[in-house]
Every structure is written in C-alpha cells, then in structure tokens.
C-alpha cells in the first residue's frame, strides 16, 4: 500500500500495558459519571450535594487532562503554564457568584 518508496513504514506492536491503562481511565470516568447520576437522585439538594458534584467533576477533569490529554506526563513548566492561568477562573467564579447574590438581594 505504501506508494512512497522513500519512506518505509514500520508498524510497531501495541503495548498491552498502555492500552490497558487507557481503558482503566475510561472505566474510572464512566464510574464517576454513574455515581454522579446516582447522587443526583439519592442526595437531597444542598451544599453537600453541590460540593460532591464539584469534587467529582474535578476528578474527571484530572483524568481527562492528565491522562487523555497527556498533560501529567509533560514537562513541569508546561503543566504549570497551563494550570496557573486557571486561577483567574477561580477568581472570576468567586467574584461573580458573590455578585449574583448581591443582585438577588436588591432585586
């Protein structure tokens, strides 16, 4: 099939360990989502439920960004240059949720 003769393509055999890890991460993501689904119906609305959801979302984000996007295995300086700017999001979140409460109070 390889029509280009300058490049001889050598296919390497799959690394079982690597593929198993991919499926393990997939299983974790699926299990956390199923658990979220369960919590949505079993636990009554409140601070506990909200914080449980947020923690589970961060766990899922950790696996997607760390393993699937491979960020966990990159150079430290690259990891930090992606993660540190996200602090701005935390600031915006706190500021605007607080602001929302104030708007509600004067509405």
């Amino acid at each position: 099939m390889n029509t280009d003769e300058r490049n001889e393509v050598v296919v390497q055999p799959p690394d079982k360990e690597k593929i198993n890890r991919i499926w393990r991460v997939a299983l974790i993501l699926g299990a956390v989502t199923a658990l979220e689904f369960l919590v949505a119906f079993v636990v009554g609305a409140g601070v506990f439920k909200t914080s449980t959801f947020i923690i589970m979302t961060i766990v899922k984000a950790f696996y997607i960004v760390g393993e699937f996007m491979h960020l966990k295995h990159e150079v430290k300086s690259l990891i930090w240059s992606i993660l540190i700017p996200m602090l701005f999001v935390v600031w915006l979140l706190v500021a605007l949720i607080y602001e929302g409460g104030s708007i509600f109070a004067v509405r």
């Binding site: 700017p85 999001v89 915006l92 979140l93 605007l96 949720i97 602001e99 929302g100 409460g101 708007i103």
Partner: peptide
C-alpha cells in the same frame, strides 16, 4: 477554557441572582 468558564460563570451569576 477561559471562554467557556466565562459562559458557565455567567450562568452561575444569573442563577444566583
């Protein structure tokens, strides 16, 4: 990610108002 954060945080703001 900043764009989506902006949108989702706006949701939070409007919801809590």
């Amino acid at each position: 990610a900043f764009t989506f954060s902006g949108l989702l945080i706006t949701y939070g703001l409007i919801r809590y108002s």
